[in-house]
Simulated assay, not measured.
Amino acid sequence: MPTITPFLWFDAQAEEAAALYATVFPNSRICDVTRYGPAGPGPEGQAMTVVFELDGLRFTALNGGPHFQFSEAISFVVPCETQDEIDAYWEKLTANGGAPSQCGWLKDRFGLSWQIVPTVLPELIGDRDPDKARRATEAMLKMTKLDIAELRRAHAG
């Protein structure tokens, strides 16, 4: 079976974005950069494509111009075991122009959407006890960055 690789279209920030992501996530690196030559269509020397890995998952980023923008229709989920992990990813991905949203969603400074989610969340909001699940869900819906301790308190009642 072929390997499926996310392909991200940037205006002109593919190399900058890949460099940021490679510093945010462990076991990540830039693998290859292909640059535009004199034939273009981008400025000669600018990165055309950037192949990078985030914790072993390969991505390709393209500097394709302003024709397409990211939307929340596509996002990347980052499962976190601890609040410290949530806080660290949240801080790094919202830095320098990123924006928080609600329910653990954010946009980084390039407009790419991320979900920073505690691994315990499905257990809390999917509890077989409907009251516990409702309380946890209601708490989550009021949050921007998710707070594990608060979600657990709401779940417990």
Rank of each mutant, 00 (worst) to 15 (best):
T3R: 12
P6W: 03
P6F: 05
P6H: 07
F7Q: 12
L8A: 11
W9F: 14
D11G: 02
Q13E: 14
A14R: 01
Y21V: 00
P26R: 05
N27K: 12
I30E: 00
C31V: 08
C31T: 06
D32V: 03
D32Y: 05
V33K: 00
G37K: 12
P38L: 12
A39T: 13
A39N: 13
G40F: 08
P41Q: 08
G42K: 04
V51D: 08
F52I: 01
E53I: 00
L54M: 14
D55Q: 10
D55V: 00
A61S: 13
F70D: 05
S75H: 10
V77T: 14
V78D: 06
P79R: 10
C80I: 09
E81G: 14
D84C: 01
D84S: 12
D84K: 03
I86E: 11
D87I: 03
A88H: 13
K92W: 01
K92T: 02
T94D: 08
A95Y: 03
A95W: 00
N96D: 15
G97V: 02
G98I: 04
P100R: 11
S101H: 04
S101W: 03
Q102T: 15
C103N: 04
W105K: 05
W105S: 10
K107V: 00
R109N: 02
G111M: 08
L112A: 12
S113M: 13
V117F: 03
T119V: 15
P122W: 02
P122V: 02
E123N: 09
L124Y: 03
D127N: 14
D129T: 02
R135Y: 07
A139Q: 15
A139R: 14
A139L: 11
L141E: 12
T144G: 15
D147S: 11
I148P: 08
A149Y: 02
A149D: 15
R152C: 11
A154S: 14
H155M: 06
H155E: 09
A156V: 01
G157E: 14
